[in-house]
């Protein structure tokens, strides 16, 4: 389908431009601002010694003109080198390789669960529009949208760990277990690969709370969209046609309503997944989950330039790729787009 390929090519091009812009902006942001990386990373004594400070700045290229630093950075990332974190003294790419799987492990299941739940509840609410079921679902979503994520995580931790003892106190594994041999970086998957079923069970148990909280937050964000998308579809004439054809409710719901309502939901879900990947920071913080959000937070706090650039670049890439994927998926589901 040449029009589809053309569309993808066009999207890809604008995605590349966007990503280049991201490198410029993040780089400028971190370099033009008044924060002093040397001050943040050296002890007061070391900072006061001009030689040590000069050595530090030379080592990280901080003494070069900004555009030289930028060109060097751009050249490096094109080779997959995101620089070295001043904080962990490891390549940023390696750090990301460690922290990103932890976030994926909670974000992907949460997203999948959230879509299923939000679509189900959203359709139900749309079909029972302005009746008690609808009001109840909408109120719950409103509360979810208005709740500070970190507070929700705390309340959940208090209830399910402190009071009920059903879930662990955060973290990825209990102390008695060693992480499984790293393959994907996701403990549950790695443990399953290694056949360590006790570790698998423990890792799964640790997933329950973070996944549950992220799911609840994402559902409340999605519900509104699903509901209004579904209401719009239910009002459409083609649904009246389906009813006039005497089709059973099951077919009308799943073949006619669901399919048409899914399109707008898909777009929003892409956006939500991207923000989930980075935005889980607050929940990760409360549950001591060593994911991307915590890494970003720690690098931001310690003015770890390379790490901040690495994280933001990574998130922007993910965001752009997801949007691209959504566009492509969209044109697969909606025959009208590929044909334009």
């Amino acid at each position: 389908m040449p029009p589809l390929l053309k569309m993808i090519g066009k999207r890809l091009l604008s995605a590349l431009v966007l990503l280049w812009g991201v490198t410029v902006v993040t780089f400028l942001l971190v370099n033009v601002v008044p924060g002093d990386a040397a001050a943040a990373n050296l002890s007061q004594q070391a900072y006061d010694d001009p030689e040590i400070r000069a050595a530090f700045e030379a080592k990280w290229g901080l003494d070069q003109p900004i555009w030289v630093q930028y060109v060097r950075y751009l050249g490096n990332i094109l080779q997959g080198d995101l620089g070295t974190s001043q904080q962990t003294h490891r390549p940023v790419a390696e750090d990301l390789g460690q922290y990103v799987p932890a976030t994926i492990e909670i974000a992907l299941p949460a997203m999948a669960l959230a879509i299923v739940i939000a679509v189900g509840l959203g359709m139900l609410a749309a079909m029972r529009k302005n009746r008690p079921t609808d009001t109840g679902i909408r109120s719950a979503a409103l509360v979810g949208l208005s709740t500070p994520p970190f507070w929700l995580a705390l309340v959940a931790l208090y209830v399910f760990f402190y009071l009920l003892g059903w879930v662990p106190n955060g973290g990825r594994l209990s102390n008695i277990y060693d992480p499984p041999p790293a393959v994907t970086g996701m403990y549950t998957v790695d443990a399953a690969i290694a056949g360590q079923w006790d570790v698998f069970g423990d890792a799964l148990w640790h997933l329950v709370l973070p996944v549950g909280i992220l799911t609840a937050l994402t559902v409340s964000g999605l519900l509104r969209f699903v509901r209004s998308a579904m209401i719009e579809v239910l009002d459409a004439e083609y649904i009246r046609s389906a009813i006039a054809k005497g089709l059973p409710r099951r077919i009308i719901t799943w073949r006619h309503v669901f399919r048409a309502g899914l399109l707008p939901v898909l777009t929003v879900s892409g956006l939500m997944l991207a923000s989930l990947l980075g935005g889980a920071v607050l929940v990760e913080q409360v549950l001591s989950w060593p994911g991307l959000g915590q890494y970003a937070y720690k690098s931001a706090i310690s003015l770890d330039l390379q790490a901040i650039l690495g994280v933001t670049l990574f998130i922007a890439v993910v965001y752009t790729l997801i949007n691209l994927l959504v566009d492509v998926l969209y044109s697969v589901i909606d025959p009208r787009i590929g044909a334009k």
């Binding site: 008044p34 980075g278 959000g293 970003a296 931001a300 998130i315």
Partner: peptide, 24 residues
């Protein structure tokens, strides 16, 4: 508008965190 797209390409909280941390 490209600049606006650029800002929206980040999760708000991450960008806000980076900015707030960078400025102190």
């Amino acid at each position: 508008m490209r600049l606006a797209d650029l800002v929206l390409a980040f999760p708000q909280i991450i960008l806000a965190m980076a900015v707030a941390a960078a400025f102190g």
